[in-house]
Design a protein around this nucleic acid. Structure first.
Length: 591
RNA sequence: CGGAAUGUAGCCUAGUGGCUAAGGCGCCUGCUUUGGGAGCAGGAUAUCGGAGGUUCGAGUCCUCUCAUUCCGACCA
């Protein structure tokens, strides 16, 4: 490809909207164009990277026996009604009517479509197990797209679906993906960590997330350096500190103006946050039986220095869904937001974190604006319907396994693998006949990787002050020829042109900067775009007997004779490819 | 969906009620130049996000609205 003909161009300055490094470089390099919030066009350079990534995905899927299919992005609503998600997912899912006035849906993911397909094609245990996948567009009308390609509304995902007759079979396919995903990320040059993401209710349900650690991430990982424990904060376990125990003192009501947060309160009273009680008002949706759902008002009490872990709370009250309570709902039970506690509250299910229950003489809300109560004690001053661990893990707490201090790190989820079990197959009647002729639900798994998010995470990991440094495996081109024009002769031009032809003939992906620009301009663009290998053709190098070879990101360069340039580049490509290939290793599966 | 900020040419910015909206980058033409974002000369590109209002006069003040970004809620 000649640089002069590429659709799109580079920018010296990034638009002020772009804040994440990957967002800035991808825009400045002429890779992507933002159309609206969370909507991007991919220009030729980015498309080439996506093609490379998708190539790796296809190869790795083939390695674990997955067959490629394609399911539509527009789906009829009835399958989403069958799975129940038509009713449970909010405005993130886009619904519309087609010309015949049928309810339609833009696919957020393809479990329903796959189940619909499997229900029609899977008949016998002899046809199982199966593993199918596609790389297809998803639409999620996210309330808050951000950071360029990190969180978007329309994106492509590689999603695969396994179908098995047994939990052992599912486990096998699950572990195959676990390994496969490490291979994929390693081949793309991205460092990831696999963390447990949901132990959930429903017994055997297990999920892992593949996390790229970065401060711009939205997930928090809790990990332990000394024993290797790690987990998404949502489900992380930790050892609670000892409760402070004193002799019980009498309750005392005090005026606390403008103390709506624990922080305000602790400062105002000059007590540590750990001596306060925090009230969190939630509404849980609970499935009583197949037909009926009820909403339950839940009042969660924690020690003031701890955060509520909603996943733990949802599990504790067996909630299908959990949301923050609205202000009128809070008032309806007799509580006051900002000054809340269980004291005097009626009609709420009170869940008290075990540590808060053991702690004595805490400061809590009086359920009266501007007032708190001193010396609250669980059991004496208010009753707990349930005492259980509902606190979120945080850095500084102790590891449950080894007692070392836990650490926290932000991360972006670039992939996940999920043991669905029979959740969808039962709802959507995906069954097969077993050896005895009995109908059984198929046991499913689903496995996803966001392609654009992976691309942007690679840029986050591989860049410097000048631009992107692509890993060779997914670089839009393997080598860039930078021609420096020379008025005194045509030699440089001729050498560059003939090298360009030689590279193409040798099957090397080459970008030829043939533009009539100054050297500095071209070097800066080359660094920005980030092609791994560079050959500079100009008077100075020719006088020294060749062309100048340089690896992106390395300081040194060397003169290579013109007739050895193709071999040199071939060797270097192989060297860089080997580096990435060597990253691919057997990983130990961690439950 | 809550809180905040910002909208001036393709990009970055100036413009603090008063003349024809200014500069840099980029773009076009010509000449010159060619090893880390060259120089000179000429040129094109803005309904100042939109609507309404206040005013003799609005890019500037007010109201509404739209969009984008950031923080939070949310995230199958």
């Amino acid at each position: 490809m000649r640089f002069s003909q590429i659709f799109g161009h580079t920018l010296k300055e990034a638009p002020s909207d772009a804040q994440a490094v990957s967002h800035q470089y991808l825009i400045r390099g002429g890779y992507i164009h933002q159309v609206a919030a969370g909507l991007f066009s991919y220009l030729p350079l980015a498309r080439r990277v996506l093609n490379k990534i998708e190539g790796i995905l296809h190869e790795e899927m083939a390695m674990i026996g997955a067959q490629e299919i394609t399911m539509p992005v527009v789906l009829p609503a009835d399958m989403w009604q069958d799975s129940g998600r038509w009713y449970t997912i909010g405005s993130e899912m886009t619904k519309f009517h087609d010309r015949k006035d049928h309810d339609m849906v833009l696919a957020m993911t393809h479990e329903e479509a796959l189940c619909d397909l499997a229900a029609k094609y899977i008949r016998s245990h002899k046809e199982l197990p199966q593993l199918v996948y596609h790389i297809q567009t998803k639409w999620r009308d996210d309330a808050r797209p951000r950071a360029g390609l990190i969180r978007v509304r329309e994106f492509k995902m590689k999603d695969s679906y396994s179908l098995d007759t047994s939990w052992e079979g599912l486990d096998k396919q699950y572990r195959a993906h676990y390994q496969s995903y490490f291979n994929i990320f390693n081949r793309c040059g991205l460092d990831v960590l696999a963390v447990k993401s949901d132990t959930g209710m429903m017994g055997g349900k297990i999920a892992h997330e593949f996390m790229y650690l970065t401060p711009i991430g939205e997930d928090t990982i809790i990990y332990c350096d000394s024993c290797g424990y790690n987990s998404n904060r949502q489900v992380a376990e930790f050892e609670k500190p000892e409760a402070v125990k004193e002799d019980l003192k009498d309750v005392e009501k005090i005026e606390t103006p403008d103390c709506k947060t624990i922080d305000d309160l602790a400062k105002f009273l000059d007590v540590p946050e750990s001596r306060t009680a925090k009230a969190v008002f939630m509404v849980a949706t609970i499935q009583e039986d197949n037909e009926t759902e009820v909403e339950k008002f839940v009042l969660a009490i924690l020690r003031g220095d701890m955060d509520l872990n909603e996943t733990k709370l949802a599990n504790a009250v067996k909630a299908k869904d959990l949301r923050p309570a609205h202000e009128d709902e809070i008032k309806a039970v007799g509580a006051v937001p900002g000054y809340g506690s269980p004291v005097g509250v009626k009609g709420a299910y009170v869940v008290v974190d075990d540590l808060a229950a053991e702690s004595t003489n805490l400061v809590g809300g009086a359920n009266e604006a501007g007032f708190h109560l001193l010396n609250l004690n669980c059991g004496r001053d208010f009753k707990a319907d349930l005492v259980i661990d509902i606190a979120a893990a945080e850095a500084g707490y102790k590891c449950v396994n080894c007692g070392a201090e836990l650490k926290a790190e932000k991360a972006v989820e670039v992939g996940n693998i999920f043991k669905l079990g029979t959740r969808y197959s039962e709802a959507m009647n995906v069954t097969y006949q077993d050896e005895n002729g009995k109908l059984q639900p198929v046991i499913m798994g689903s496995y996803g990787i966001g392609v654009g998010r992976l691309l942007s995470c690679v840029v986050e990991q591989h860049n410097d002050e000048y631009g992107i440094k692509w890993p060779i495996s997914i670089a839009p081109f393997q080598v860039e020829i930078v021609l420096l024009h020379d008025k005194k002769g045509t030699e440089a031009q001729e050498v560059a042109e003939s090298l360009y032809e030689d590279f193409k003939a040798a099957g090397i992906e080459v970008l030829f900067d043939d533009r009539k620009e100054s050297p500095g301009f071209k070097f800066n663009d080359a660094d920005l775009i980030g092609i791994p290998l560079r050959l500079t053709v100009g008077r100075r190098a020719l006088d020294k007997g060749g062309v100048e070879f340089k690896v992106r990101g390395e300081k040194d360069n060397e003169i290579v004779p013109v007739d050895e340039a193709v071999d040199k580049i071939k060797t270097e490509i192989q060297r860089l490819e080997k580096e990435l290939r060597d990253r691919v290793q057997k990983v130990e599966y961690k439950d």
